[in-house]
Amino acid sequence: MKEFNGPVLFLDRSDINTDEIIPARYLTEISKEALRPHLLEDLVLEEFDPRADIAGKRVIVTRSNFGCGSSREHAPWALEVNGITVVIARSFARIFRQNMFNCGMLAIELPEAAIEQLFSRFAGRPAEVEMDFPNSRLTFRAGAEEAVVPFVISDFDRKLVESGGWVDFADSHYA
């Protein structure tokens, strides 16, 4: 499995689309690594500076309908090559969510109240997440502040993460 522990980036907006995550002008790249400098390059968000804010982050916490729009798997890849393996949101667009799990990464949906609490307690602070995957628990920490957040993912998505993604799963299950 991939590394899921680390610092958090908060993106306080709903409907962040895949054109904002990785613009179409970079879809001519055929190496994932080439996407690295362009993650969230077109996202216009107050106090967000892609170059300074993405470095070193492992987890994104955001609002609803993250990853809507194009089917481009370049979006999860652009996250992955920047070290981001977990996105936590109120909800996701279907294709983006599936792409995350297909790559062995995590797209975790939390109730509105839980998302709201994470923003109010941890956004704007140097927050870190510790992942307890077997027990479906996230621990957020910033200074003395700590929150333990349970989460639910489908049994199938769990299998994908544990088997390293859909290609390996399908290869071992289907002729």
Binding site: S71, E73, I95, Q98, C103, W166, V167, A170, D171, Y174
Partner: peptide, 15 residues
């Protein structure tokens, strides 16, 4: 619509 990984499995396995 699907991502590249679903496409890859579709090409290989037809599922």
């Amino acid at each position: 619509g699907v991502g590249t990984t679903d496409l890859e499995v579709g090409i290989l396995k037809g599922v």
